[in-house]
Design a protein around this nucleic acid. Structure first.
Length: 299
DNA sequence: GATGACTTCAACCAATGCCG
DNA sequence: CGGCATTGGTTGAAGTCATC
């Protein structure tokens, strides 16, 4: 009895079960750090539910019970979260508990909640209002991300062009045409190094924050080596959202400035070239492998 | 010493994006 | 076009720092 006393918290129990399962995944071909974090997080939620509903531990979960759980869960969360939980359970069953063979899969369940896909972009004036509601350090990150179309985490990976070679990717001559500034590189999604263009005045401000020694930064469990004293990742994203709510009474998230970049570049380029060509140029500037991805930024 | 502006963290949920 | 991997958004609690 006494030895269970410290484990009466259901959340703590579920957390431990998820952690143990993930530990047993070591040695398998593990996905990225961020994905591992997602799996563990989702498995913790799954464990909490099934501990209560089925009175069993996480690794006792059967295929039939998993199906039952996901079907119930479809009423509570959206498709993406439901997918993540199914994948996490599936990976556990394939690699740890053996309830599924390596090629066997769980049935895909449809969420009952429909997702609303509305525009996330900000006008230049709106971005300026958000910038004004942030401290100088966060404001600089916002201005750079907006001017160069960066993802939040990419702010932690900035480096001048002459200090790092970009990945070998096709590039049209029209890349960055109509704008000028200083070329930097960033380490993007999936390890793709790409060139980005930062206006001169912002590049100057950025260089005043250059560090003598690069500093180690952890964001959402992922390690970065930042060469500048600027914010990025979830800290900047959080700052942006709260500042947006203060200034505008709404927020579409920091990623909204990347949507703005895409839309502004498209309207600039469409004046001097056909739509298809413009889309191709913008997709290269944003580090997309295919132009169709860029189109989701235009809605 | 209360209040508000601002930042950070952790936990939960969702969108983005590649590829078969 | 769907499955799956990777990245981002929101929220509440808590901390710092002015300001009154």
């Amino acid at each position: 009895m006494a030895k269970f006393a410290k484990n009466v918290d259901p959340k703590a129990v579920a957390e431990k079960q998820a952690a143990n399962v993930m530990k047993q995944m070591q040695g398998k071909t593990l996905p990225s750090v961020g994905t591992v974090r997602n799996y563990e997080e989702r498995l913790k939620i799954v464990a909490q539910h099934i501990n209560a509903e089925f009175k069993c531990g996480l690794r006792d979960l059967t295929v039939v019970q998993a199906h039952q759980y996901l079907t119930d869960r479809a009423l509570e969360v959206g498709q993406k979260t439901l997918d993540m939980e199914r994948q996490a359970i599936q990976t556990m069953m394939q690699n740890v508990t053996g309830k599924l063979g390596q090629t066997e899969k769980l049935e895909v369940i449809k969420s009952e909640k429909l997702q609303i896909l509305s525009s996330r972009s900000y006008t230049p004036e709106q971005v300026q209002m958000v910038v004004n509601a942030q401290t100088e350090r966060n404001a600089l990150s916002t201005e750079i991300a907006y001017a160069a179309g960066l993802r939040a985490h990419e702010l932690h990976t900035l480096l001048p062009r002459d200090e790092r070679e970009p990945s070998d990717r096709p590039a049209l001559a029209e890349k960055f045409s109509g704008r000028d500034g200083v070329i930097y590189t960033i380490d993007g999604k999936g390890g793709l190094i790409r060139e980005v263009l930062i206006p001169k005045d912002l590049a100057d401000k950025l260089e005043t924050r250059r560090l003598e020694q690069p500093t180690h930064i952890v964001d959402r469990g992922v390690n970065y080596l930042s060469h500048y004293d600027i914010n990025g990742g979830n800290r900047w994203s959080s700052s942006y959202s709260t500042a947006s709510n203060r200034a505008l009474n709404w927020s579409a998230g920091a990623h909204g400035v990347r949507h703005s970049y895409a839309q502004e570049r498209m309207s600039e380029l469409k004046k001097v070239m056909p739509y298809e060509k413009a889309l191709k140029v913008v997709s290269q500037e944003m580090g997309h492998f295919r132009p169709e991805i860029t189109e989701v930024y235009l809605r």
